[in-house]
């Protein structure tokens, strides 16, 4: 997998500042963030609501642009990329897992996983085989033909993880992935992601204030008022 690439850094964030304008009033969401993510990391960005976790994740995921500072993804300066190149970068290098799962409601579990591979131009037979294998690996092979509205939250989030890793990304960004799940389901899901990290070397960065997520993370970054106040290896 690309996740096993030997590059020392997947993400480098340098002096990133993000200012929002709320009714004309500037609000500092991020204030001088410096951060690196290395291959194989299983990190969590924690912090209270409004601390800037999602904003940071969006910037790392190239969904949002910093007001100041630089973001490098796999050594490439994100700011120099066009919208089209950024979409391609996300397709090839990043997998997203959202709090609300965000599966395509008109596609089955299998098709949702296939979708990102289709966007990469992988032929139908290969992507179907791979999607089925992924769903099996994640323990939801029997749900392949179910639509999202026919699945539980935990099942949908597993499909979302399968979708996120289907293109063998360098990095999976998971924004509050357990927030909508009950604690038992959340634990199972975290175990799954830990296994993917451990066995397949997939790099995960979470944003979460769920203690179960924080507990399992190998590295803990705590954000407060837009600044990283703690960056430590989690024991």
């Amino acid at each position: 997998m690309d996740g096993k690439n030997t590059n020392t850094e997947i993400v480098r964030v340098e002096n990133v500042r993000k200012v929002y304008h709320d009714n004309g009033v500037p609000v500092d969401a991020l204030r001088g963030i410096n951060l690196t993510v290395s291959p194989g990391d299983f990190s969590v960005i924690a912090g209270p609501s409004g601390s800037g976790k999602t904003t940071l994740l969006n910037i790392v995921g190239t969904l949002d642009k910093p007001t100041e500072g630089k973001v490098y993804l796999d050594g490439e300066d994100v700011a120099s990329k066009t919208r089209r190149e950024l979409a391609d970068m996300r397709l090839r290098k990043i997998g997203f897992v959202f709090q609300a799962y965000n599966l395509n409601p008109v596609l089955s579990a299998l098709e949702n996983v296939e979708f990102t591979m289709m966007l990469r131009g992988i032929d139908a037979g290969k992507r179907k085989r791979k999607s089925l294998a992924l769903l099996e690996e994640l323990g939801i092979g029997e749900l392949a033909n179910k639509r999202p509205n026919e699945m539980s939250g935990g099942q949908q989030q597993r499909v979302a993880i399968a979708r996120a890793i289907s293109n063998e990304p360098r990095l999976v960004l998971a924004d509050e992935p357990t927030a909508n799940l009950d604690s038992e389901t959340a634990v199972k899901l975290l175990e799954l992601m830990e296994r993917l990290n451990h066995e397949d070397g997939i790099t995960f960065v979470f944003s979460s204030h769920d203690p179960q997520v924080i507990e399992r993370a190998h590295r803990l970054l705590i954000l407060k008022d837009g600044q990283i106040v703690t960056d430590k290896v989690n024991k």
Binding site: G61, A87, R90, L119
Partner: peptide, 15 residues
């Protein structure tokens, strides 16, 4: 919202 997700997962504008 759906288009936002599509864009996030790398769906190009032309698609």
């Amino acid at each position: 919202h759906e288009f936002g997700v599509d864009m996030a997962i790398g769906m190009a504008n032309r698609r």
